[in-house]
C-alpha cells in the first residue's frame, strides 16, 4: 500500500475545511446562548424552542413541504413518461427536438425560467399561490427526473419488455408489471432529487409565489436581510440534518443492495452444477 503522504493529508484537510467549515460554524452558533450571532455565550438549545414558536417559519415550512411533495410527484410522473418515450419510442418525427427541449431547463438560468413562468401566469390570469409554485417546480425538476430515469431505462435489456408482450401482456401491462418494478429505484431517486430541488429553490419560487404562499427559502432570505438571527441558524441546522440523514440512508441502501447482489451472484456461480 502507498504511504499516506503529507501532501495528500494537507490537501484533503484543506478541501474538507473549505466545504464544511462554514456549515460547522453555523451549527455551532445555532447552540449559542447569546442573541448576538458572533459572540459565544455558552451552550443552549433555546433557539430551537423559539423556532417552533415562530408561526411565520412554521407556515413557510408547511408550504415548502406541500410544494415539494406535489411538484416532485408530478415531475416524477411526467419525467418518467418523457424518459420512456425518449428511450423506448424508437425514431419518431421531432425526437431530437423533443429530447433537446426536455433537457434545456437543466442549463437554463433560473431567473429566466422564473420570469417566463411569471409572465405566463399573469397572461392567463392565474392567481399566484401554492398552485403556481407547484407548477413552476414541476416544470424545472421534471427534466432531472427524466435524466435519472432514462439512464436506467437505457441500461436494461429491452427484450425483457418484449418477453412480457410475448407472454400475453398488453403494452400497458408490460410497463406496469415489468418495466416499472425494474426502474423503480431510479423513479424513487428521481422523486427524491425533485423533492430536494424544490425544497431549496429560492429564485423560481420568488417569481411565482403569492403573498399567502411564502416558502422557507424565501422566508429565510428575507429574514437574513434584516440580520442573521440564531433562529435561522437553528432552522438551517435542522435542514442540514434532514439532508444528511436522507443522503446517507440513500447511499447505504443502494450500497447494501449492490453488495447483496454481488454475493448472490458469487453463490450462484458456485452452485452451477446443482
Amino acid at each position: 500500500m502507498r504511504r499516506f503522504s503529507w501532501f495528500n493529508a494537507t490537501s484533503l484537510t484543506l478541501g474538507f475545511a473549505f466545504l464544511y467549515l462554514p456549515m460547522l460554524i453555523l451549527i455551532i452558533y445555532s447552540f449559542n446562548e447569546s442573541r448576538l450571532v458572533t459572540v459565544w455565550a455558552g451552550f443552549s438549545t433555546k433557539w430551537y424552542g423559539e423556532l417552533f414558536q415562530n408561526e411565520a417559519f412554521l407556515d413557510a415550512a408547511w408550504v415548502t413541504v406541500k410544494v415539494a411533495f406535489w411538484s416532485s410527484t408530478f415531475a416524477t410522473v411526467l419525467g418518467t413518461m418523457a424518459a420512456y418515450v425518449l428511450v423506448r419510442g424508437g425514431r419518431f418525427l421531432g425526437r431530437t427536438l423533443f429530447s433537446g427541449m426536455i433537457y434545456a431547463p437543466l442549463v437554463m438560468p433560473e431567473v429566466i425560467t422564473g420570469l417566463s413562468l411569471l409572465l405566463l401566469f399573469i397572461a392567463i390570469g392565474m392567481d399566484r399561490g401554492v398552485m403556481t409554485i407547484v407548477l413552476a417546480h414541476t416544470t424545472f425538476s421534471m427534466c432531472y427526473v427524466s435524466v435519472v430515469v432514462s439512464s436506467r431505462l437505457a441500461s436494461f435489456d429491452r427484450s425483457v419488455e418484449e418477453a412480457a408482450l410475448d407472454l400475453g401482456c398488453s403494452p400497458f401491462d408490460a410497463f406496469r408489471l415489468v418495466t416499472l418494478p425494474i426502474i423503480a429505484p431510479a423513479v424513487i431517486s428521481g422523486w427524491l432529487l425533485a423533492f430536494t430541488l424544490s425544497l431549496d429553490d429560492l429564485v423560481i419560487a420568488s417569481f411565482t409565489s403569492g403573498p399567502s404562499s411564502t416558502t422557507l427559502p424565501i422566508r429565510i432570505f428575507s429574514a437574513v436581510r434584516l440580520g442573521v438571527t440564531p433562529e435561522i441558524n437553528a432552522l438551517s441546522t435542522i435542514m442540514i440534518g434532514i439532508v444528511t440523514v436522507g443522503v446517507v440512508t440513500a447511499s447505504l441502501v443502494s450500497k447494501r443492495t449492490m453488495t447483496h447482489r454481488a454475493a448472490d451472484e458469487r453463490k450462484a456461480e458456485q452452485n452451477d452444477k446443482l
Binding site: 435489456d157 427484450s159 425483457v160 418477453a163 412480457a164 410475448d166 400475453g168 401482456c169 415489468v178 425494474i182
Partner: peptide, 20 residues
C-alpha cells in the same frame, strides 16, 4: 398483429428473464 395477440412464444437468446 402485435406480439401479445399471437399464439407464438419465444425463448430469447438473451433469456430476458424478469429480474424482479
Amino acid at each position: 398483429v402485435p406480439p401479445n395477440k399471437r399464439a407464438v412464444n419465444m425463448m430469447f437468446q438473451s433469456y430476458a428473464l424478469f429480474p424482479h
